[in-house]
Design a protein around this nucleic acid. Structure first.
Length: 720
RNA sequence: GCGUCCUUAGCUCAGUUGGUAGAGCAACGCAUUUACACUGCGAAGGUCGGGGGUUCGAGUCCCUCAGGACGCACCA
């Protein structure tokens, strides 16, 4: 027996060394597996992309959970003989990354991005991204992820950039990408547009003011934003509202807080007669719904009274004031003029930017959009329908079916996707202008700048490049062998919090570009919370660093703790106590091995098994059958638990105890049978446990007399 | 407002297609130079949120009520 078993299992001495050996073997790469005869040339494929972590810093426990699940599945498939590919990569994460660096520069040097300029800021961001990338790759390896590093990708590298430009052009030519002036979600803090999904609503109480534009104006109007009223061009009431019927169509000129306004009364069914006074002041430039109402009634869109810095632009007393100051000023003015009729508290959902926390200012802006309601040429369906179709037909299934309902509900409410951002880090919009001319896709031939062309200043939403990840990582737009072999991928595994951001966008982009689903199955995991059930956050100081956890208890223990009993789609709680329990389990397995190896020296593996021992073998066969079915059905939380239970309470507590007198006894046949049994049971247990605890099982396997492959990682899965 | 999920042992959670309730941790009793930086054995603990229905049979399906979490939404 190897002397290493005389000491308790020490993951710190083992895990790094094992990972290095795996990596060196090249067996994470399916091509090597085929070359070495581990995988058959014509084996079924199983492919998966790693959801690329943002290059914004370090990995958290959510990432560790993701890796534990995905690596378990990939290792299982690899051992079962599948041609298995798991592609690693990282995401440039546009706004997220740029804002981290901007904050850093502001803090350390007191400079804004405009002080630095586009080129210099990009240098800083790229340096930061490179550093984050290296940290993240190290963390992925620490967790034991068996990713094929030869195929690593980055959402902003050359191959992926080309894919982005190609998809953009294809959509542009199909008339699905358009440039349009609309009300956007403007983040004054981040100085960029954001999509609807990047908004976080915060519940606050606001004041609802009821007022009249002037003493002789016939209709009182309610608002929570008096400062926007200097931009009003109309008042809308419900068509059936008897109170105001006589005024519909009439026009009024008023002077409101020194600003001359021309107000037309219109009837629109979107107005709720029961709310406030049943009349809405229409501010087309600073409210989405007002813009639409103005559209329907041919009211002017031109009146803009707030700028990108959330400051007033109307000439006079309000000019240059922040919106909050202007609000107070106007309320004072209304009071002094006797125009304020009521002031009441009302609950309000304030739209804020997810990344910066800035309060969203709706502004009209010329932006790039993806039209989700227009028929896709040649497909007979809109993008919305293309997103729904594979889910409805079952081409894509969700591991927890209820997410299918959530997904459908979201799509039913989906509007056009704003894809342009006014930041610098990301894929520059591939459109070049010269006068009235515009070309999309690739830059005009020759020295285009000299020829009078300029490229669009904006960059693309980071989810645009993330949306094509399943095929851009396989080399598209080249028709590569990888693409033909591994796409559609089999499984996407990610957090439910990015179902809309990412999963939905991948379905959209892939259906459009390839006419394929990006993946066949969606497995969504929940949030990792602390022992009290709170979200982990910097401000609470309850963050757990996967690296610290791995250093203290071992990556195997962390992985087991994250997987056992954690049903897909539901949040889980993690504590050091729980992880410690699985460190003890690793040690238990270690000692089981020590006992078995110590007591089976020189044993005959082919010895005939007694009836009792055959029964023990059959028990494990049943477990193996169960576990295989569980993992195939993505119930890996059950598989891991069953194995834990078997190894500890069946193999150790019952069979090992029962074996002591047999091995020390005089019945040579019984002893030989039992020795062969113990080695077989241990061998199979190691194989079954490997996907969940890859390091300790590999380390033991290397000392097993039953060793039948270079690495346990590529040993054959025990099929009953 | 629309939608989704949760409520099972003191705590955290399982319970795959309906067949007389399970695990981990905690707590209790006992054992222990044992393969085990500990571990083993044993006992205890639940009217499965309330009510109703379908069924030979419901933690599991349907309805309803209550409490909690979350997602979406242009209520000015």
């Amino acid at each position: 027996m190897d002397e290493k078993f005389l000491k308790p299992y020490n993951p710190n001495e083992t895990e790094g060394r094992i990972y290095e050996a795996w990596e060196k073997s090249g067996l994470f790469n399916p091509d090597t597996c085929i070359a070495e005869g581990v995988t058959k040339d014509d084996a079924l494929t199983f492919s998966m992309v790693l959801p690329p972590p943002n290059v914004t810093g370090r990995l958290h426990m959510g990432h560790a959970l993701m890796l534990a699940i995905e690596d378990a599945i990939i290792r299982f498939k690899r051992m079962r003989g599948f041609r298995t590919l798991w592609i690693p990569g990282t995401d440039h994460a546009a706004i997220a990354t740029q804002s981290v660096v901007e904050k850093q520069v502001k803090k350390e040097e007191g400079l804004s991005r405009h002080d630095l300029g586009r080129e210099e800021l990009m240098k800083r961001v790229q340096a930061f991204a490179a550093e984050s990338h290296d940290t993240i790759i190290g963390q992925l390896k620490t967790m034991g992820a068996s990713l094929d590093w030869s195929r690593e990708a980055f959402t902003l590298d050359e191959t992926r950039s080309r894919a982005v430009r190609t998809v953009f052009k294809k959509m542009y030519d199909a008339g699905l990408i358009y440039r349009g002036l609309r009300i956007v979600n403007w983040d004054p803090k981040g100085q960029t547009t954001i999509s609807d999904d990047e908004i976080v609503y915060e519940e606050r109480t606001a004041k609802l003011y009821t007022f009249r534009y002037s003493k002789d104006f016939p209709i009182p109007v309610a608002t929570t934003r008096p400062e926007t009223k200097v931009g009003d061009v109309g008042v809308a009431v419900h068509p059936d509202d008897a109170r105001y019927k006589e005024y519909v169509g009439k026009e009024y000129d008023v002077v409101f807080c020194d600003v001359p306004l021309h107000i037309k009364v219109v009837a629109d069914k979107d107005v709720d007669p029961a709310f406030g006074t049943g009349a809405v002041g229409i501010t087309p430039a600073h409210s989405k719904i007002d813009w639409e109402i103005a559209d329907r009634h041919e009211l002017s869109h031109e009146v803009i009274v707030i700028n990108e810095y959330a400051k007033m632009t109307v000439p006079g007393r309000l000019e240059g004031k922040k919106v909050t100051e202007a609000r107070e000023e106007i309320v004072e003015w209304l009071k002094s003029e006797g125009l304020l009729e009521k002031e009441e508290e009302t609950p309000q959902q304030v739209a804020t930017a997810e990344r910066t926390g800035g309060i969203i200012e709706p502004l009209p802006k010329l932006q790039w959009w993806i039209d989700v309601n227009k028929e896709v040429p040649g497909r007979g369906m809109t993008l919305k329908e293309l997103m729904l179709d594979p889910v409805k037909t079952g081409a894509i299934t969700f591991v927890s079916e209820h997410f299918e309902k959530v997904y459908v509900h979201w799509i039913e409410n989906l509007r056009d996707w704003c894809i342009s951002r006014q930041i610098w880090y990301g894929h520059r919009i591939p459109v070049w202008y010269r006068g009235e001319e515009a070309v999309a896709g690739e830059a005009p031939a020759g020295d285009w700048a000299k020829d009078g062309w300029t490229q669009d200043e904006d960059t693309l939403d980071t989810w645009f490049s993330a949306g094509i990840w399943t095929f851009s990582t396989l080399g598209w737009p080249e028709s590569t062998k990888d693409l033909a072999t591994y796409h559609p991928t089999d499984l996407i595994e990610t957090g439910y919090d990015i179902l809309f951001f990412w999963v939905a966008r991948m379905i959209l982009m892939t259906e459009f570009t390839l006419g394929q689903v990006p993946f066949k199955t969606v497995y969504l995991h929940g949030l990792v919370r602390d022992a009290q059930g709170r979200k982990m956050s910097k401000s609470l100081g309850n963050n757990m660093d996967p690296l610290d956890v791995a250093a203290k208890f071992g990556a195997d223990a962390a992985r087991m703790a994250l997987v056992v009993g954690n049903t897909p789609g539901t949040d889980m709680r993690i504590s050091e106590d729980k992880i410690k329990g699985y460190k003890l389990f690793a040690n238990k397995l270690w000692n089981i091995s020590r006992f078995i190896l110590e007591n089976t020296q020189g044993a005959d593996l082919a010895a005939p098994l007694s009836e009792q021992d055959q029964a023990h073998l059959a028990t494990l066969d049943d477990i193996a059958k169960d576990v295989t079915a569980d993992i195939e059905a993505y119930r890996i939380y059950l598989a891991a638990e069953k194995l834990y239970h078997y190894v500890w309470h069946e193999l150790a507590d019952k069979i090992l105890e029962e074996s002591k007198p047999i091995i020390q006894g005089d019945d040579a046949a019984a002893k030989a049978s039992r020795q062969a049994l113990l080695l077989t049971l241990l061998d199979r247990s190691l194989k079954l446990l490997h996907p969940f605890m890859p390091f300790v099982t590999e380390e033991i396997y290397q000392s097993m007399p039953t060793k039948d492959a270079s690495f346990l990682m590529v040993a054959k899965w025990p099929e009953a």
